[in-house]
Design a protein around this nucleic acid. Structure first.
Length: 158
DNA sequence: GCCAACGTTGGC
DNA sequence: GCCAACGTTGGC
């Protein structure tokens, strides 16, 4: 099993949205970055776990856990002219944008903020989230990094 | 294939 | 709202 981190703006789609929606499962739509797409298309497997990260908000950080529950398939929003994610250049016979479905697993009892992650950066080796200028919205997380974040969750609850 | 211009991301 | 860091686009 592999581990991931996936960013979303809580004003647009936050962890509580995923928690409330039908079957607590949603397509992770709107990704328009090739590197992020490639991770979903080529590297994700059903059963992989992912951190839900809130970006572009008052307290950016890791707030929950999701599971990858589908194989990759085309992002329908790319063909929806009314969607913010519409892509006129995408060919229906060869869709440019691919996504997976994610399912809510749980919220962290104590969110692990970006501030906290940065303050403890020495406990991670090469965490991409903490790399300077990192803007990637989907990235791999090592098992060790995953466990360290969960340790921090526990510590914060003490 | 280079690179300037432009658009986006995301922390602050 | 600002702006640094990136990614993409398109002229040449």
């Amino acid at each position: 099993m592999k581990y991931w981190l996936m960013k979303s703006e809580p004003d647009v789609f936050g962890i509580e949205h995923l928690k409330k929606c039908k079957k607590q499962t949603e397509p992770w739509d709107g990704i328009r970055n090739y590197q992020a797409r490639n991770f979903m298309r080529d590297d994700m497997t059903i059963g992989d776990q992912a951190f839900f990260y809130h970006s572009n908000c008052a307290e950016p950080g890791i707030v929950g856990i999701m599971e990858i529950v589908s194989d990759p398939y085309p992002d329908f929003t790319q063909f929806d002219a009314d969607s913010n994610y519409y892509d006129a250049k995408s060919d229906p016979d060869d869709p440019r944008w691919i996504l997976v479905d994610v399912k809510f697993v749980r919220e962290l009892e104590q969110p692990v903020s970006l501030k906290h992650l940065k303050a403890n950066a020495d406990r991670f080796d090469d965490f991409r989230l903490l790399a300077k200028g990192n803007r990637l919205s989907i990235m791999p997380v090592t098992r060790k990094q995953w466990n360290t974040v969960l340790e921090m969750e526990k510590e914060l609850g003490q």
